[in-house]
């Protein structure tokens, strides 16, 4: 367990509000709309999944939430304040772990603390985060010595060490083999349950969305629009074979227009 940097332990997760958010890219002079008036309200400590086909603009939405880009229209707010720039209270775990190859696992995890000048006083947090993701023995390894799953764990530790109020997960398990993936899904849930952060997960895997999230937002093809919302109030750990789970999965596939294929 990584102890919070701030002391307000009770209210750890932050709220997130999206108001009519639209975004488009300029591709050689041609406007390419990717997001179409997305409105969403995420409560404190909620786990929300954004589900949609590949290339529908999910990752763009996450970049906006992270503050890496600004939307063409609409507003994004957290705790009532507009998101204008990246902030360490909103940390992203990308699909590709993007560890810095010139740093050991330890100093990769320490990156956020170092960037904010907190490393001298909070060194212990790095070890805590490494223990949390089960990488204690690999603190001095370089990223090229890690397997895909271990690298993604390290990326997760690098995010968690900052005690985020909102954890943004951009298909974080997309590149893992199916066995590692199942194990990591369970770990993500238990991390979220223990740390109380708000989690926003982007995925194109229906089962993953339903296993992890309390609410699944189904997005349309590009430009992404909210097509449906599926609530899943089942307790954790959830099972793929559970009749209710199967029913929800059928419902989500129907929203994606894939009910016949299923």
């Amino acid at each position: 367990m990584v102890a919070p940097i701030a002391s307000d332990h009770a209210v750890r997760g932050s709220t997130l509000t999206l108001r009519e958010v639209s975004h488009r890219f300029d591709l050689e002079g041609q406007p390419l709309p990717v997001l179409d008036r997305i409105s969403l309200q995420v409560g404190r400590g909620e786990f929300v999944a954004l589900l949609g086909p590949s290339g529908c603009g999910k990752s763009t939405l996450l970049r906006l939430v992270a503050g890496l880009d600004t939307p063409t229209a609409g507003a994004l707010l957290t705790e009532g304040r507009e998101i204008e720039a990246p902030d360490p209270s909103r940390v992203v775990v990308f699909q590709d772990p993007t560890l810095y190859p010139w740093r050991t696992v330890w100093s990769n995890v320490a990156l956020g603390l170092e960037a904010r000048g907190l490393l001298p006083t909070h060194r212990g947090r790095v070890e805590d985060a490494l223990r949390l993701v089960g990488l204690t023995g690999f603190a001095n390894a370089y990223p090229h010595q890690l397997s895909g799953g271990m690298a993604q764990r390290a990326a997760l530790a690098r995010a968690l060490v900052n005690d985020p109020k909102l954890l943004i997960l951009d298909e974080p398990l997309g590149q893992l083999d199916s066995l590692t993936r199942i194990a990591m899904q369970a770990e993500l849930v238990s991390l979220w349950q223990r740390s109380n952060f708000t989690a926003l997960l982007v995925t194109h895997d229906v089962e993953e969305a339903l296993l992890l999230a309390g609410r699944v937002i189904v997005l349309s093809d590009r430009p992404a629009r909210i097509k449906a919302e599926v609530l899943n109030s089942q307790p954790y750990p959830r099972h793929r074979g559970d009749p209710h789970f199967v029913e929800l999965r059928r419902e989500v596939f129907a929203h994606l227009g894939l009910d016949e294929a299923w």
Binding site: R63, A66, G67, L68, P86, D87, P88, R90, V91, V92, F94, T98, L111, G112, A115, R116, R158, N162
Partner: peptide, 8 residues
């Protein structure tokens, strides 16, 4: 991107 989201 990574460093910026971490407050660099």
């Amino acid at each position: 991107d990574i460093a910026r989201t971490l407050g660099a």
